[in-house]
Design a protein around this nucleic acid. Structure first.
Lengths: 338, 338
DNA sequence: AACGTTTTCGGTAACGTTTCCGGAGAAAAA
DNA sequence: TTTTTCTCCGGAAACGTTACCGAAAACGTT
């Protein structure tokens, strides 16, 4: 009913509040028997310290905030699990918010977390976010921030990513080795760093193998399944069918697959497909989708540890960018039948 | 750098803190010009009220907590989006935590949220949770709590569910109408209410059509893909192959499908499948999975509104159970070819 | 026995708000 | 003009903690 406070405990034991406080916090400055007795009756009375009061006083909360664009796809949830694993073990609570790919909501989330005095944040930028001034100020004011996946090179802080360029390169090369020559790329939205990197990987793989890139073979699609579907429909309407597609991520690849199947195209016989950022779907759809997997769990734990180091290092700290390894899971959707 | 507080603003304007506070809160008791000036300079100084201090004083936080078992599958994330939609509009922030299907973590989460003085909670019980005493106390002490999906009939509070019995009945009947006679049910874990309801629906559909239920045709599986896979493998090993399976949810259905495909069984020719609780996967896998869809978004908004009503109703309040409508999406996996 | 040291505890300020109470001055009523 | 009412504002307590300061008591040393 009513919250039992430190004062209630003190009154019951006829001691001062500071003694009770000490029983819970100090390691010395209190007699062992006193502490045990206090702890016992406190437990009996159902008392536990109020973290809000503590936050107000200490100006920090033992909470960290996580802001992600969405968690409909399994990517971010899996990362979050990694983050939680590290922080819960350390006695931190993890507050999760989602921006819904909107810059405004993202900013609202950040501000809420800030006011709640979280000790640090882990953020993956929303699709829409172009202006990162608020983040800059945050970082300059010394606030611990770690970015992952959707990062910005304008921000001087720790980051966790995979080498998008390299794995886009490998994925494209895989298609080339399979013998495909007219390969299209469904690219992501312009603002994101990985869009650029994955596109460059696509281009350079062609360059290495001295293959021309057919005109308009790089289509700006988006990140959603509907984006892949829409762009593919357009290509089909224009009778401009590639023999393979490297998509910026799995949902767009799956969207393209949906459109292709609807129009009777066979995969991979007519059109081969490769996605990026392994989703739960990739191995299950028909045909199973070749895709670059990211170590989601490890991204989470790494980001968490970077943030933890940053929080605990009272002194100097140099931002660090950790590049984790990806992995190309080759499946049916990209295997040329001879 | 340093947080700017109400005192800073007061000092700058040479007025008292209470006046500044009034400018932000009171509707009367302050002259319009004074308020405008305070609001202006406050904005200019970058001041905004500290919610922690406010929480401490008011003993509530304008935050609500959500605890779900997991968010790897899209079900809970979709519900959460519905919840957020309602609450963000009302100026509440939504704190999300996941129990990982563990009673202990669940309890930890609840306590954390409680200490953070959330004004209410929306919870979906973890798989493991049998003892609901803590929740009982919470409810009895007048704390606003709404359950959804994974509910307990021991708890006298508002709930949002779908009619599991009815839709399990329909799903089973669908298989019967298709002409299947040796139908198995992969059931969920014993503790959950929906396990029981879905099982009863399965049984009663047989009863209505005067069909015998073959012995051992109800197998306790679980909720994970691996559970479905494991149970199916066992059946295959025992050469005990049904001609159709109604699974307690999509992941188990998909797990079963995986095992069946691996062993060369054709779906639905050899074995037909029906799942429950539409996942993002159902329409995309091969073959597309027939499944009972839940209105995830609506579950979220409904739960949110129930909680909001409960919070805002200072007086009496009667717990309410809202039963939303499901929907059977028939796809290839359950269509008998003649 | 006098003194210094250590152990153990109580009192109090502070964190940033809101709210109640009361007071000063202005406006309205007498 | 005097009294009453209203408008607007300042002071201070309170929310539940922790941290600092100092004091009492216990102990050890000469």
């Amino acid at each position: 009913m009513k919250h039992v406070t430190i004062k209630d405990v003190a009154r019951k034991l006829k001691c001062s509040v500071s003694t009770v406080s000490r029983a819970f916090n100090d390691k010395y400055d209190i007699r062992k028997e006193t502490r045990d007795q206090i702890l016992a009756t406190a437990k009996e009375m159902g008392y536990s310290p109020n973290p809000i009061a503590k936050s107000l006083l200490k100006q920090c909360s033992n909470q960290i905030g996580v802001v992600v664009p969405e968690f409909i796809n399994s990517f971010f949830p899996e990362v979050i699990i990694g983050i939680q694993e590290v922080f819960l073990k350390k006695g931190y609570q993890v507050l999760i918010m989602q921006s819904g790919e909107s810059t405004n909501t993202e900013l609202e989330n950040i501000k809420t977390l800030e006011k709640n005095m979280v000790d640090g944040m882990i953020v993956s930028l929303s699709l829409e976010t172009k202006n990162v001034d608020y983040f800059k100020n945050l970082i300059n004011s010394g606030f611990p921030l770690v970015l992952f996946n959707r990062v910005s090179n304008e921000l001087d802080t720790s980051k966790v990513v995979i080498d998008d360029y390299k794995w886009a390169f490998f994925a494209t090369e895989h298609l080339i080795y399979q013998g495909f020559r007219n390969i299209f790329h469904f690219a992501g939205p312009g603002g994101l760093m990985f869009t650029q990197n994955r596109r460059n990987g696509f281009v350079d793989a062609h360059r290495k193998h001295k293959l021309p890139i057919s005109e308009n073979s790089i289509m700006e699609a988006g990140l959603l399944m509907s984006d892949g579907e829409r762009v593919m429909e357009k290509l089909i309407a224009m009778h401009n069918i590639p023999d393979a597609i490297f998509a910026v991520n799995d949902p767009t690849a799956i969207g393209a697959m949906k459109a292709l199947k609807k129009h009777g195209f066979k995969i991979p016989d007519d059109v081969a497909l490769v996605g990026f950022t392994e989703s739960k779907l990739a191995p299950l759809i028909d045909p199973p989708l070749t895709s670059v997997a990211q170590p989601t769990h490890e991204i989470g734990t790494t980001a968490a540890r970077l943030l933890l180091d940053r929080i605990e290092s009272k002194g100097i700290f140099v931002p660090q960018t950790v590049v984790l390894n990806g992995r190309l899971n080759v499946r049916e959707s990209s295997m040329k039948l001879r």
